[in-house]
């Protein structure tokens, strides 16, 4: 009978955390998009949206993405805290996932030193800017 041995103190680092995060975020993006598309259908997307609008809704469920000139108050029911949270989570997972991919590309292809630090810093700031912009768009719509 083989005994399970346990190894303590393995330590954490950014790559380990991001390895877990990329798996969690990848699955979450698919799940959130699925929830978005299903609930949009339940809320009448079949009659109120064309395919392009439905896709925009799926990946960024912002009330501004619900377009139908025949129904003036179409956004009623789509702008609430639930959809705001959905929007923010999708944006957070997608941009953080992408920013981590860029970080790894930079580490692989830009020589170590000041240059790499600057490029990594630029992508970090870009990630932060996109998140702040996303929060602004989510809260103001």
């Amino acid at each position: 009978m083989m005994q399970t041995r346990v190894v303590p103190q393995r330590g954490f680092n950014l790559d380990y955390i991001m390895f877990i995060f990329t798996r969690v975020s990848g699955l979450s993006i698919v799940l959130l998009a699925l929830v978005g598309i299903i609930l949009a259908m339940v809320m009448g997307a079949r009659t109120q949206m064309d395919l392009g609008t439905l896709m925009r809704w799926t990946f960024f469920p912002n009330p501004n993405h619900v377009v139908n000139s025949d129904i003036p108050d179409v956004t009623l029911g789509w702008a609430n805290a639930y959809w705001s949270t959905m929007q923010f989570l999708l944006i957070f997972f997608a941009f953080t996932h992408a920013a981590n991919g860029l970080r790894m590309i930079v580490e692989d292809y830009v020589n170590r030193g000041v240059g790499q630090l600057l490029v990594r810093g630029f992508f970090f700031l870009l990630w932060l800017f996109m998140l702040i912009t996303a929060i602004f768009v989510v809260l103001s719509s």
Partner: peptide
């Protein structure tokens, strides 16, 4: 099962350019 340095090796592998 006879080896005793697994923790140290896993720490080495858990580096920026390790298994992940």
């Amino acid at each position: 099962s006879r080896d005793r340095a697994a923790a140290e090796r896993l720490r080495i592998l858990n580096d920026q350019f390790g298994v992940f």
